[in-house]
C-alpha cells in the first residue's frame, strides 16, 4: 500500500475524510483489491472489538464498594 493510500485508509477508519478524499478513496478501493481487503479487514475487526462492550459489573458490586467506604465519612445529608 502506498503511503498516500495508507494515510487515506487511516483517515477513513477515523471517519475523517473530506468529501473529496472520500471520493478518491472510494475510487481507489474499486481498483485496488489489496487496499479494499485491508480496509474491510480493519472495519470487521473494529466491529468485533466493539462487541466486547456487552459486559456488566457483577452482582453485589455496589454493595461491596459501599462496604469499603471509611466509616468516618458516613455523614448523611438529605437530598434536596
Amino acid at each position: 500500500m502506498s503511503c498516500e493510500h495508507e494515510q487515506l485508509l487511516q483517515k477513513a477508519l477515523d471517519g475523517e475524510l473530506s468529501i473529496r478524499e472520500q471520493e478518491a478513496f472510494t475510487a481507489h478501493l474499486q481498483q485496488c483489491k489489496a487496499c479494499k481487503a485491508e480496509y474491510e479487514l480493519v472495519e470487521h475487526m473494529i466491529v468485533d472489538v466493539k462487541k466486547l462492550a456487552d459486559i456488566s459489573a457483577p452482582l453485589g458490586f455496589t454493595a461491596n464498594v459501599m462496604r469499603q467506604l471509611p466509616a468516618g465519612h458516613k455523614k448523611k445529608s438529605p437530598i434536596r
Binding site: A53, S56, A57, F61, T62, L69, H73, K76, S77, I79
Partner: peptide, 24 residues
Amino acid sequence: KAAKKGDQHAFEGLVELYKDRIYR
C-alpha cells in the same frame, strides 16, 4: 454535589450509574 458533602446514598447512586463502564 451531595456526595462531595459526604452523603453516601448519593455516592451509591453514582456507583450504580458508572459501575458497568468502570468494571468493563
